[in-house]
Amino acid sequence: MHAPRKDPLLLAGKTLTLLIQGAMALAAAVIVLVVPAILFSKDEINAEVIAEVGPDALAMPILPLMLLLASVLVVVALVFLFFGKLRGIIDTVAAGDPFVPENADRLAVMAWLQIAIYVAKLAAERAAVGMASWANQFREVKVDTSFDIDVIPILLVLVLFILARVFRHGAAMREDLEGTV
């Protein structure tokens, strides 16, 4: 059974994945450009902070800032890859042949990518805490330092791994069926 060629849901899914990947590529480019700009102008930034805040101003914490930007860059790259895998699945559904071993592999990779996104997001949050005291010089910044476990990413990972098994089993059943016909 083939999916309709102009299925609006598949078209919306493919369009959304492309838009998200485009946004992630743009975000990555901005981060890559911002990092050297900050490193080359950190002395000027610190001088401006002293001029605004006074002689007791804290210097810009370069290490936490670079860790924050690196963590965000990792998240952006992983999200880009995640939606690339999803687009591959959408393409096979649009072609009418979703139960292929590649989709099982894509779903498993998407689960691992989601785990990596979660870990990188935690690293970004920790680095942001390191930036909070510096940012407090300008405006009261409230940073939540509690450690809460978000169950949604955990459930997504579980669902993706289960779907990977379903797709792998479906592909194997189809191969068995084709072998008997």
Rank of each mutant, 00 (worst) to 15 (best):
Glu44Trp: 15
Ile38Gln: 08
Leu155Thr: 09
Ala25Pro: 02
Ala108Asp: 15
Ile162Gln: 11
Glu102Phe: 13
Lys85Pro: 00
Lys14Ile: 10
Ala27Lys: 11
Pro101Gly: 07
Asp97Lys: 14
Met60Asn: 01
Leu63Thr: 01
Ala172Pro: 08
Ile31Ser: 08
Asp43Ser: 09
Phe167Gly: 02
Asp176Asn: 07
Ala104Arg: 13
Ala25Glu: 04
Leu9Asn: 03
Asp97His: 13
Val30Leu: 15
Pro101Ser: 15
Pro4Asp: 08
Leu156Cys: 01
Ala95His: 02
Leu18Val: 05
Arg168Ile: 01
Glu102Trp: 09
Met1Lys: 12
Arg106Met: 07
Ile115Gln: 13
Val93Ile: 09
Lys14Cys: 02
Asp56Gly: 15
Leu65Thr: 05
Leu155Trp: 10
Pro64Gln: 04
Ala12Ile: 05
Leu177Arg: 15
Ala28Lys: 07
Glu125His: 04
Leu163Gly: 03
Val74Lys: 14
Gln114Gly: 01
Asp97Asn: 15
Ala111Thr: 12
Ile90Pro: 00
Ala120Phe: 05
Val93Glu: 03
Ile50Met: 11
Ser133His: 10
Asp148Phe: 01
Glu48Gln: 15
Met1Ala: 14
Val75His: 08
Met24Glu: 11
Ile31Met: 09
His2Asp: 12
Val181Glu: 04
Ala37Glu: 11
Lys121Trp: 06
Val93Tyr: 09
Val129Tyr: 14
Ile115Lys: 12
Ala171Asp: 02
Ser71Arg: 08
Ile149Asn: 07
Ala12Leu: 12
Glu44Thr: 11
Ala171Trp: 08
Pro36Cys: 04
